[in-house]
């Protein structure tokens, strides 16, 4: 924890509420992610992880509540907040008619980066993430894992102070997964902050500093990984908190019969 004194949290969510057609999916969710922290957001399917991250990154307007990124209110001053934040959502497509390299250049140009900075960075990111060979292939022809990696590269290229990643390891092979872990740990060690969602407990337990367990649009528990796993693995704690719906022993007997 390198939480500098006198500075606010990297990401602060206060009383976030989201309703879709009158159905409330996020219920007054509040979180504070300290700076220099690799923060995991875990929860079952439909817990509201993606919705929460979308509201925190300016992609989805909250029904109520505020989101602050390094002191900038995401919804009152979106441009300042977006300038210091890198985002890699899950399940949203990229501009698929562009090649991988073109996509990185495109994002850099949109962020008004000077070329002599952005072009070498793009090459380095492509090499580190093992995409150099396919840099001139259109993203439409990328595999799911390659799409994950190129979106991570696009989120990193402007060296943001906060990185928000939705399921960054999904569909990524073990070799690239290791590269991404190394990148994220190094990034955090130099003072950056990462917020990532996942539903793979082992991954979060091994990688993150702090964890929030979210279910039904509420925070059920929030602590350091060490504190949460004092009495057992994160996996067990998660099942206790969320309440595992047991598949009864005599159910689905026709399966495999």
């Amino acid at each position: 924890m390198t939480d500098a004194p006198g500075e606010g949290p990297a990401l602060e969510l206060v009383g976030l509420v989201k309703e879709f057609r009158g159905r409330r999916v996020v219920h007054g969710l509040s979180l504070a992610v300290p700076r220099g922290c690799l923060y995991g957001l875990v929860g079952p399917n439909g817990a509201g992880k993606t919705t929460t991250l979308s509201m925190a990154t300016g992609l989805l307007r909250p029904t109520a509540g505020t989101a602050r990124v390094l002191g900038h209110d995401v919804w009152a001053d979106p441009l300042a907040a977006k300038a210091v934040m890198g985002v890699a959502p899950d399940g949203l497509r990229l501009f698929e008619q562009l090649g991988g390299r073109e996509l990185l250049h495109y994002v850099a140009d949109l962020r008004r980066m000077p070329q002599d900075v952005s072009r070498p960075r793009a090459e380095e990111l492509l090499t580190v993430l093992d995409l150099a060979v396919d840099a001139d292939t259109v993203v439409a022809d990328y595999s799911a894992g390659m799409v994950k990696k190129i979106s991570l590269a696009a989120a990193l290229i402007h060296a943001p102070r906060l990185l928000v990643l939705d399921e960054p390891f999904e569909a990524v092979d073990p070799v690239s997964g290791q590269a991404i872990r190394t990148i994220l740990r190094r990034y955090v060690a130099t003072g950056g902050t990462v917020v990532m969602s996942s539903h793979v407990m082992e991954l979060v337990e091994g990688l993150c500093d702090r964890v929030a367990v979210v279910a039904g649009g509420r925070v059920l528990a929030e602590d350091t990984v060490a504190a949460l796993t004092a009495t057992g693995s994160l996996h067990q704690r998660f099942l206790e908190l969320v309440g595992a719906g047991d598949v009864s022993e005599d159910g689905l007997t026709w399966l495999g019969g």
């Binding site: 959502p89 497509r93 501009f95 994002v107 962020r111």
Partner: peptide
């Protein structure tokens, strides 16, 4: 034609 990929314009603050 951009579709949901347009999120890249939103998140980069264009």
């Amino acid at each position: 034609f951009d579709g949901p990929a347009w999120w890249m314009h939103v998140s980069t603050g264009v």
